[in-house]
Structure formats: C-alpha cells, structure tokens
Design a protein around this nucleic acid. Sequence first.
DNA 1: GCAAAAGTGTTTTTCTTACACCCATGT
DNA 2: ACATGGGTGTAAGAAAAACACTTTTGC
Lengths: 238, 238
Amino acid sequence: MSAQSAVALAVSTVIFALRSDAESDFKTLWLPLVRRTREPYLDQWALPGGGLPGDEELAAAAARTLRETTGLAPKYLEQLYTFGDPGRSTGGRVVSVVYWALVESGEADLAVVGENVRWFPADRLPRLAFDHNRIVEYALWRLRTKVEYSRIAHAFLGETFTLSQLRDVHEAVLQKSLDPANFRRTIEASGSIVDTGERVAGTRHRPPRLYRYNDCGRQDEPDPFGPEPATTAIPATN
Amino acid sequence: MSAQSAVALAVSTVIFALRSDAESDFKTLWLPLVRRTREPYLDQWALPGGGLPGDEELAAAAARTLRETTGLAPKYLEQLYTFGDPGRSTGGRVVSVVYWALVESGEADLAVVGENVRWFPADRLPRLAFDHNRIVEYALWRLRTKVEYSRIAHAFLGETFTLSQLRDVHEAVLQKSLDPANFRRTIEASGSIVDTGERVAGTRHRPPRLYRYNDCGRQDEPDPFGPEPATTAIPATN
DNA sequence: GCAAAAGTGTTTTTCTTACACCCATGT
DNA sequence: ACATGGGTGTAAGAAAAACACTTTTGC
C-alpha cells in the first residue's frame, strides 16, 4: 500500500442526457465532451475529468467535473470501472476511475456549451482521445442493462412524471418500443413509483396521472454494505 | 489527467475458495488474509495487495498478489470496485482498486499458509484492517448474485465435474439447497456444459456423468467492448 | 434386496407477452 | 363525432418450481 509516483490517478465521467434528435423522431442519448487543450491528444474530444485532489472523494470529483463542464448536477451517479492499462495514454501512465451519470433531460438543455464543450449523440461519436470510445461503449451497455432491472430511468425526468414519459425514457434507452399496458403493470408491480393523485391537463386525450419516484423501500439493488449508497443519489459533497 | 502525488494507488484482491468447514457439514467460502507487518493497522488481518508497479496491468497486479500470497493461480478474476474515501486509511490517502478471484477448491488445500497468511471462513471474519470488512461483504454479494446468472461456479471445480459437484458449489455459495432435477435442466439449457461421455465409478450409487465447461459460445455476459475480456480468464501476463 | 444418488417425466404455478377493448379529453 | 393516448382485462405462451418416479450402482 505504498505510494507509487510513477502512476497518475484521474477521475472521468460519462454523462448521459436524453435529447431530441434531428435525425430521429424519438429522443436519443447524448453526452457532453470536452476538447483537449494540451498534449496528448491535443484538440481531440474526450470525457470530462481531471486529476484527483488529495482531499476529495472519488464520487465528489466526478460530480464536480460534471458541474464544471456542463453546469448541471447529476440525478444519478455511479462508479463504472477503473481503466489502467499501461499504454492507454501516450505519455505517462494514467489510471482513470470512471463514473457514469444521468442528468435530467429538461435541464440538459440549459447546459453550458462552448468552443471546448459540446454535446454529441452517444451512438455517433467521433474518434475520442485515449480509450474513451471503449469507455463510452461500456457505459452505454451498463445503462441499457441496468435500466431493465433497476429504477434509474426516472433520473432523466423531473420530480413528477407520467407513465408514458417514463416509458419514453425506457424506449429511448433500449431503442425499442414497449407495450404500454405491460409496461404499466411491470412498473406498478415494482413499487418504484407512487401516484401523486394529480393529473396533467391540456393534452388532447385522457389526462394522464402524475407519478412520483418512491424513495423508501428501494430494495431492488441489495449492495448490502455496498460502496454505492452515497452515489445512488446526488452526493452530499456536491 | 495530471499526476497527483498526494494520493497513493494500490491493488487488492478478495480471493474465494470453497472448503470443508468443521462447523458445517457443507462446504463454505473461505478466503486468505495477510497479517500486516507495518503501520497503520500493524498485526491486523487484511486483504492481500500492494502498490501498483509502474508497468503492470491492474489485473496482472491482482493475479501476482494472489500468487505471491497463496501460491495459486486464479480460475476467475474480475475487477470489483475502486475504493477511495479520504480517511479509509489512517496515514496518507490510498485509493485501492480491488479485484475478486475464484480459485479451484482442490488446489486451495495446497495453498501456502504461514504465520502471516491464513484462511478464514468468509462469513466469520475478524475485524480487518482499513475498510476491508466492507469490501469483503461487497465481494460476497457480487459472487452470490453473479453465480445465479453467469457461469462462474465451475471456477471452483477442476477440468471435469459432475452435475452434483456443480450443484454443491451453487448451494454452498447461495447457502440454500437446490432441486437436483431443476438444476440439471437449468444448466443443460444454458449450454454452458458439455457431456464428456465419461462417468465416475466407485460411488455407492449410479455412476454420474462427467461434464466439461463449454468455452465457445459464452454470450451470457455481453460487455460489448467491455473492459473485462482479458480478466474473465487467467490473465496472459500471469 | 436395500440405500443412495443419478436421471427422467409430469404437473402446478408464476411470469411474460400479445392484444382486445373501454375511458376521458380536446378539437 | 372522432382521433388520441390513458388505462383495464384477459388469454396464450414460456419459464420456473414442485414433486413423483424410474435407473444404476455398491454393499
């Protein structure tokens, strides 16, 4: 457990948001990238991240990175994987602890965009710096598998939402359409949502109910004394 | 991605083997721990591990650690999680990339044991150094959930095995008995095993068939371009 | 023959999927 | 009225669980 000065440590974050896509009629996954301002990979697009300050929690560093590049706070944040191949970076060796985050779709439109920060559709990325293409692929796989057995989809939505909004999220992430009737039953049976009693007016059809995420009793992802309890919500340090 | 000298980087490994337990009639999970020979936590038991050499792959460091402490080679090795709370170590801050490994039960009996290396039953551990109790708990949870949907159980067994041996592994890990008939069908349907044609003689009952693990066509854990392909088997660098 | 585990067959239950159909609203 | 999505009912199909029963060995 001694220090090894030869290896640098960094924290990066894959940030997902759901946005309307000109090419598609449906919402699709987008993520913000930053342009590198120094070697290696100068001017190439890369995941937001940076070195780890000596007194900062790993998840907090990921959340800070996210806030600094996008101006947003994550609705969901979880450690993805630690990449440490020697040779994944030209220059000195870097071990990157990578997090993945979901941000609310509505707020994502407010996100900062500049010369050095830009949003890209997750399935049509340019060639990225380092091994970041591979990292994004893995994060996408993780998101898609996890949306089916956990309750992360609501992280893309606001405080309250209709079932078809929630279904739209699932459909956009999974890239396939879902039966509204069966979707309703599956979600209701999971106990992850609560009827607020309110309804949305102004639609040109029957007004849908508004639901809220059910905080209590989320037993679906055990993680007994797991390392992730603080990161399944917005970190306190954020 | 700059170097941060304030933070030390280490690799630790949670190593599981299946052993007969004097307290129980069934096999149970055991793991080797090492006694710390310096501060902090001097003389306390801890997970095997150490600093990361500048040119060594993370998984290779975990496999080397495993070999050095137990004399064994892992049949399965996978990254678990990276723990980095400031304050998880008294003294300087340490970020630990933790792996978990499975070793063959038969070989585990040959493992090195000494004054500073000892095997403990996984569910009756002493108070460990650092946050290592929490880490083992998480590794156990991971093992138990993963044994149900992937084909890792055979990592505890040799080249060939009977279905009841495989079932014994599942029962020991999950700590519950399984219906032999349904277990057979589930495993056969998964296509993860192949009948060798041979049988085991010498039992005082009908001789059971010997099966072999099916290498090809293991599509059960996608990980498209996942970071784990090299670590699901014995690392080449080992 | 008997005990014990291997292995097969069958029934029951549970979950998933497909899809028919009614409901409530704006236009 | 009717188009549109919200919401309910139900039956077919697939998968999981429970359990009866036959097979093959050693003793």
